[in-house]
Design a protein around this nucleic acid. Structure first.
Lengths: 248, 248
DNA sequence: TTTCCTATTAATTTCCAAATTCATTTAACT
DNA sequence: AGTTAAATGAATTTGGAAATTAATAGGAAA
């Protein structure tokens, strides 16, 4: 119960959509999982979360239940909740699926995108390219602003695919991929020139060259995965351990 | 608290995974939404659900939160829950997306499927073909057994696609499509010979003719959608009403 | 009539304590 | 020793009451 209802504006008829504690916990916990602040496989005890997010048990459980159906949290009846686990095999499967789904989204978006769509891509690329990847200069530190703009850019590309379902699937897969990306961000930084990759993607998209845009995007996705795989992270198992409750 | 924990088997080491009230409500409510027993757009008040499922508020809310992230229920902070709405435009978008996703799943599954996969397809087709579409003879009545076997058959086809994500997406889209199908089931029954459609799909799949299998499956999906659209159901709006809270 | 404000009612959300279930240890027995 | 059973402790799950918020109705002012 900290910053709940920061401003209850009731002057004009525009109803201010006040949020709930459950939703606020949901957003925070989701972010903590994506950044790896809550580590893969970690047990999520209600008392611990109660303290961490300064909320009661009910809103905490509501958030956990929401996250469990998006596969960020895994639930076992009568045995509570875990952060979903990760594995090399899982990353390979995820990467493969992302390439399939994003290919459709890009092709459709390029076919149906209009002027406003093009402008949004240019704009979001500009904003992204002016923001540093890391919030520190020499070492890697999570930069929430860059992360947000990065998502905006990739979302702008596929925005006109014509299916809310497809957009939702892409987002869910990006969420999952982000968890792996954060695991290796420190290792890979600053080996990579992501700006050029994004620039190429933008140019191919704006010139409506679907084949090339798809190729660039898939290479982009695979490269990120390869960096994680080649980092040989000790805490990343080859496959999902079926005895592990965080397998999901 | 009716049939909770039907048998608490603790003889052998194999831990019997006892379920929770929340999960039981979740399953029941999900089914009620898929069959249309809880109608699209309907408000879901906690008191009403409390009575309907004979449970406390906490498990009911946990079920609602789970369903809301799978887009079967739509949630508005401080304003409660609705069954997700339906519309003609929504059905068109859903159908388009299903064709995209299932095409990938079928092609991959045909590429990677083994002997056991083929046998499972034959088996599930056999079971499906021996089960009546309707649980009554002349008029349509929901037949849970047929619905289950129907899902099993289509799942068997794509089972070897190699991606749990893709399988999950297919299932989510089938869930949504089922809601539309039930809306028009009474109207379309018994106009259609679904058995032949399934037979053709099975044969194309077993002969590893991916192009044909995809064509049949997409036609299958589109035909179902067309029946719903052409039924001109009075309660099916053209587009989603943005003022309607059940829009999601 | 319309708009705005207030009082009232209804519904949602949250906290918390009791009930249930799981995990671990200890004891008893073969 | 090894296995089974009971006992203890810890964690999850649940029901309901209290707090918060939205929706509604009624009345005053423009």
């Amino acid at each position: 119960m900290d910053e709940h209802r920061p401003f209850a504006d009731s002057r004009n008829g525009a109803k201010s959509p006040s949020t709930t504690v459950a939703s606020s916990v949901y957003v925070k916990m989701r972010l903590d999982i994506l950044t790896g602040d809550l580590r893969p496989g970690e047990k999520l005890r209600s008392e611990f979360l109660r303290g961490r997010y300064n909320a009661g048990i009910s809103p905490v459980r509501e958030a956990l239940n929401r996250l469990s159906t998006e596969r960020l949290v895994c639930r076992e009846d009568q045995r509570g909740f875990h952060v979903a686990g990760v594995s090399k095999a899982g990353l390979v499967e995820l990467t493969k699926t992302r390439c399939w789904i994003e290919e459709i989204a890009i092709r459709e978006s390029i076919e149906w995108g209009d002027d406003a769509w093009e402008e949004q891509i240019v704009l979001s690329f500009h904003r992204l390219s002016r923001t540093p990847r890391s919030s520190e200069d020499l070492t890697y530190a999570f930069n929430a602003k860059w992360e947000g703009l990065h998502r905006d850019f990739h979302n702008a590309i596929i925005a006109c695919c014509g299916s809310h379902w497809l957009l939702g699937f892409c987002e869910q897969l990006v969420d999952q991929a982000d968890r792996y990306r954060q695991l290796a961000a420190a290792v890979s930084y600053p080996k990579r020139n992501e700006r050029n990759e994004h620039k190429d993607l933008m140019e191919a998209t704006l010139s409506r060259d679907a084949d090339r845009a798809v190729a660039i995007q898939c290479a982009h996705i695979r490269k990120t995965a390869d960096i994680v795989l080649e980092a040989n992270l000790s805490f990343l198992p080859d496959d999902i351990d079926l005895a592990d409750p965080s397998r999901c």
